[in-house]
Design a protein around this nucleic acid. Sequence first.
DNA 1: TTGATATATACCGAGCGTCGGTATATGTTT
DNA 2: AAACATATACCGACGCTCGGTATATATCAA
Lengths: 112, 112
Amino acid sequence: MPIKSMHEPTFMILTALASGPQHGYGIVNDVSGISGGRVKLRAGTLYTALDRLRADGLVELDREEIADSRLRRYYRLTAAGSERLAEEAARLRGNARVAMMRLQSNSGMAGA
Amino acid sequence: MPIKSMHEPTFMILTALASGPQHGYGIVNDVSGISGGRVKLRAGTLYTALDRLRADGLVELDREEIADSRLRRYYRLTAAGSERLAEEAARLRGNARVAMMRLQSNSGMAGA
DNA sequence: TTGATATATACCGAGCGTCGGTATATGTTT
DNA sequence: AAACATATACCGACGCTCGGTATATATCAA
C-alpha cells in the first residue's frame, strides 16, 4: 500500500531532528523558528507524536541529561526516519509544484 | 490566529480545480494522475471536503450537466480558494526546502 | 444473463492525529 | 509573591480522512 501522508506537526518534528538530536522543548522552539512562527507544537501533540514515531522506528532515544535539575530527554532520527522524511519532503515539493504551475497558467482567467 | 494547515486530500482537490472547473469524479481521476497514483480520493473524503470547502467559500458550484443520463456537478475555485491554495503551496515548498537542506547537510553523519 | 468495471453522486461509523487544557516541577526574573 | 521560561506528560474534544455501503446507469466480458 502507498505510504500514508504525514501531518505538518509530525513532519516538522522529523525536520527538527534532521539537524541532530534534540530534546522535546528544543524541538518546540526549533519548529517555531523554521516555520516562521506558524507551527506552535503543543505538549500533547509533541509527546504523543514522539511516542508514535518511536513505535514506528523513525525516531529513537539518544540520551538523557540533567540540566538545572530538570530532565532533558534527547531524541534522534533513525535511518528509516531520514528516509521517510526525504520521501515526504519530495512529495511536498511535488505537490507544491503542481499547484503553483496550475495557478500560474490560469492566473488571468477571472470571469472568462 | 494563523491559518490552519490543510490535509493532503483537500490540497489536491483545490489543485485539481486550479486548472478549471471539474466534476467530482473528474477530480478523483485528476488527483490520481497528478499525484502519481499515490492519492486515491474516497467518495466520502471527496464530497465531505467539497461541502466543507464550499462552506468556507474556497469552492463554489459552477454548473450541472446531464451526461449519459448521469448528473455531473461541476465545481470551481473561488478567488479566495486560489489565494488559499497559493499560500498552502508556498508553505509546502518552504517546509520541503528546510527538510531537504537539513537532510543534506547531515547526509554523512551515520555513526558520527 | 450474469458479473465485473467505469461513471457519478452521497452518507455513515471508525480511527487517527492534533488541539487545548491541565498537571507537575524547578529556576529565573520582575 | 507572581509571572515566565524550561521541561515532561496525560486527557477529552474535535476535525478530517478512511473504508464501507448505497444508489443508478452504461459498457464490456464470460
